[in-house]
Every structure is written in C-alpha cells, then in structure tokens.
Design a protein around this nucleic acid. Structure first.
Length: 430
RNA sequence: GUGGGUGUAGCUCAGGUGGUUAGAGCGUUGGAUUGUGGCUCCAAAGGCCGAGGGUUCGAAUCCCUCCACCCACCCCA
C-alpha cells in the first residue's frame, strides 16, 4: 500500500470525479467575475521573500513560522506564495498600472503554501480564488467586492453563511487605539492566558477575540475600535454599510474580527460557515490602503478577498450542493471481429471531429464486455461495427437507454447520431 | 508548534484475553451456448494487516520509533 511515494504531508491529489467539482466551482467564479468585470491575473508561485515579510508583516504567524522559503542556485531568497494579494500588488506596481481615478479589477485562482499542521480544511498547499480592486478609496468598491463574494457562495450553494464585518481603522486612528488598549490591559496582563500575553506584544487587538472564558471576562469592558475611529474612518464605515444595504448584502458587525495580515486597513470581513468544523472561515478579505506604496508604487488604495477552494467544496458537500454537472452525452463505439478494427477507429475519429464525445474498448474484449463498459461510462448510444454490418456498408446503432437497435448505412451514421443526441437533449430539458 | 484519536483488500468495515491457509459487503474482471449492456445467479483476481525495529516457539493482535490521516488548541483560506 505504501512502499512507494505518498503525497507530501498537507497536500492531496484531486482525482475524478472530484476534479469535476473543482471545474464547476472555477467556472462559476469566472463567470461571476466576467459579470462584475474583473479580469484574470496570473503571477508566479514564488516571489522575493522580502515581498511577503514586508507586505504581510514580520510579526505575523504567516511570515514568522509558516513560509516555504528557499535559496535558489543564484543565492536569492525566494518564498512560495503564502497568499495572493502581495503578488498581485507587486505585479500592479511593476507594470505601472493605475493613475488618477483609475481602478484595476483583477481575479485570480491559485495555490498557496503555508507550513501548518494539517487538519480538516487546512493544508500546506491549498487553493484560493480571489479578487483585488486597486485604485478606489471609496466604500462602494468595498461593497462590490463583498457583494461579489456573497454572490459566489449563493451561486455555488454553500448553505447558510455568516458575514462578519468590521473596520480596524487606519494609520491615523489604529496606532492610538492600540496604545490605549495596551495601557488598559497592562495592569492585569498576568491574569490572561499565555497566548494573550504573547499577543499583547505582537497584535493586542487579537486579545479581544480570545476564546478562553477568563480572557473574555477581563477584556469585556474594553471599548471596541469602533468607538475610537477617526472621522474619515467613520465616514468610510458608514458609507460601506449604506452601500451593502443598497445591494442587499446582509452582514453582522463583529468588532472582534481581526485579520492576520498586517496590511489591512479599515474594512475587514470574513464569510463563516458553521458546517465544516473548526476551520470555519470560508473566505476573508479587506482593504489594504498602504500596500501599494509599501511595494514601491505611488500611494494607492485597494481591497480584495481570498476564498478557500477546499473549504468552499466542503461546505457545498455539507449543503448537498456538491454535484458535478452531468457529463456530456457520449457515444460508445464497439466492434466485433478483427476486420472491423480500423473501421471502428475511423468511426470514432469522425464522431470526435464532429464534436461528439466518443469512447471505445481498448482491451480487445468481447462484445458483451464492450457494451457493459459502454453502460458504465454512461454512454447514451452505441455504434457497433462488425463483419455483418461491414458487408452491407452499415453500422448498428443501439440506443442504450431504450434498448432499441437499428442498422443504418455507414454514410448516415453521423447524422443519425447527431439527431438522436439532439432529440434526447431536448427531452432532458423539459 | 501543543494535546488527544485512528491506520486491516480500490471503498466501507469484521477480525474476545497473541496460535496454523486474514473475512464480509460494495466495486473490478470473467462466465451463465456461437456477435449485444443495465437486473439476477456463479466464479475469480485483489492485503508483507501504514512502515521499521523489538518481546515471543509463534504478532494484524503486546512494546518502541517513524509516517500519514482525523479532532481540538493555535492560526487562517
């Protein structure tokens, strides 16, 4: 069972028929992006390590202990991307996109890599799809991005989700709030859990989100950042909520929502499921108004989200929506006797050239076995070529659903197949 | 990274206190008169019992170490 190789820890193979679900998910997303007018961007799987350490932030878990970093043969430090946004922003800056009143709207589908302990819904190589809208400072684009995310899950049928929404302030107000928070927590810091004592240094906002009951009690009366926003952040926050109302996106304000990447400013959001275990965050995103400048571009605001493909599929499965689209109707070409070999191959070739899905037997098996496998592939029709048929320049056409079989002239075979498939397609639709 | 659980055919699982040729269902393949599927019946193939060590006359079963997966924490997608 395992004297050979196994997929590395935290990675997995996507085999048929599961791969058909991935295709469906991606095609729904691509179609949605086309309607929202986002265009695809593809960036390298690895980048200069400093792009991530600076962009995501040195104190974050991702940079601190989860990156796949290596030195290439030229002595460069490179890192397999642990998330998608930094690369997109780097590409945006490198290509000198943007300009006054210019909005760039991208979507991507990619793998990301984080060295974490694997568990359900958490992998070392995982897959995301996401969008980035770079250039507009106003709340309407925030609402559009969140709305796109909501539409994606609605169309996929992932079941009930909770949309958590928060604002985490900007360079004007967040540092002041953080200092105030530290000041208020310091006196009783030793009563908090060890994790919180660590968070006190790295990311004190996260203490408010601690699940240890005692920590919750201790921080219960601490005012949330919503009460400490600067006027500009308040205006943005109010505008965002009005915009979300206008496009019918429901949400719940969650003052404890903090994201794990340093580049976020103002808007932060997460889509959560209660059906897929402890890794319950299906997607997350927010505004990153300082990131473009940090990557060497002119100061430019941006916002985006990233959605986990594996987790979306898990939620779809729980919701009973993980059904692959039916495979296209196909034709099975069977043959009886050695003399028919070339004739059968030729017939299959013509079917495929005509755009019809066709398969055949590859083991020189008897006719019974061929029809059995025709049945198991779900073929609707079988074309049977044998000595008898060839003698009169014909083929046998068998309807595998009704069992009816007729002999048709070879020259008409394609047309007959075409019309039968068309008729059945029409019947299926009703 | 921390704590706990699991690991027997492709899949889902049986295999009291160690004892000869390790089982079932599903799936796969073949057969049930010469060239005809689905249903049924019959049969076969397929496992170094996750890997490697150890204890023992003897290990799927006991011990150790790895590996992988699962659950929770942590973190996040």
């Amino acid at each position: 069972m395992s004297s050979g190789f196994l997929a590395p820890r935290g990675t997995r193979d996507v085999l048929p028929p599961e791969s058909a679900l991935w295709q469906r998910l991606e095609s729904v997303f691509r179609d949605l992006c086309a309607r929202f007018r986002y265009e695809e961007i593809r960036t390298p799987v690895f980048e200069d390590t400093r792009l991530f350490s600076r962009g995501i932030g040195d104190s974050t878990d991702i940079v601190n202990k989860e990156m796949y970093t290596f030195t290439d043969r030229g002595g460069r430090s490179l890192t397999l991307r642990p998330e998608g946004t930094a690369s997109v922003v780097r590409a945006y800056v490198q290509a000198k996109l943007g300009g006054p009143n210019h909005l760039s709207k991208f979507f991507y589908v990619c793998s990301i890599f984080r060295y974490e302990r694997p568990q359900q819904g958490r992998y070392r190589q995982s897959h995301q799809l996401g969008v980035e809208a770079i250039g507009s400072p106003g709340p309407d684009i925030d609402a559009e991005v969140i709305g796109l995310n909501a539409a994606l899950y609605a169309e996929l049928g992932v079941g009930e989700l909770a949309v958590h929404l928060n604002t985490i302030g900007c360079q004007e107000c967040r540092p002041a709030y953080r200092d105030r928070l530290r000041h208020q927590l310091r006196s009783r810091l030793d009563e908090f859990c060890p994790d919180c004592q660590r968070r006190f240094e790295t990311n004190p906002l996260r203490i408010l989100d601690c699940k240890v009951p005692r920590c919750g009690e201790l921080s219960a009366d601490i005012p949330s950042i919503l009460d400490a926003l600067c006027p500009a952040c308040v205006a943005h926050w109010d505008g965002l909520r009005r915009a979300l109302d206008a496009i019918d996106v429901g949400y719940q304000v969650d003052p404890k929502l903090v994201r794990g990447l340093d580049y976020y400013t103002r808007t932060a959001f997460e889509f959560k499921s209660n059906a897929i275990g402890s890794q319950d965050s299906l997607s997350g995103g927010g505004r990153y108004d300082g990131l473009v400048e940090l990557c060497g571009g002119r100061p430019t605001p941006g916002i985006g989200f990233a959605a986990g493909i594996e987790r979306a599929l898990m939620a779809m499965e729980r919701a009973g929506a993980a059904v692959a689209k039916g495979t296209r109707p196909s034709v099975f070409v069977a043959r009886a006797g050695e003399a028919a070999r070339s004739a059968a191959l030729r017939l299959m070739h013509e079917l495929r050239e005509a755009g019809i899905a066709a398969d055949t037997d590859y083991f020189d098996r008897g006719l019974k076995a061929q029809l059995r496998s025709a049945d198991s592939t779900g073929a609707w029709l079988a074309l049977i070529v044998g000595d008898e048929e060839m003698a009169e320049g014909a083929v046998a056409l068998r309807d595998l659903v009704s069992g009816e079989q007729v002999r048709v002239p070879r020259a008409q075979a394609l047309d007959r197949v075409r019309s039968l498939l068309a008729a059945r397609n029409g019947a299926n639709r009703s």
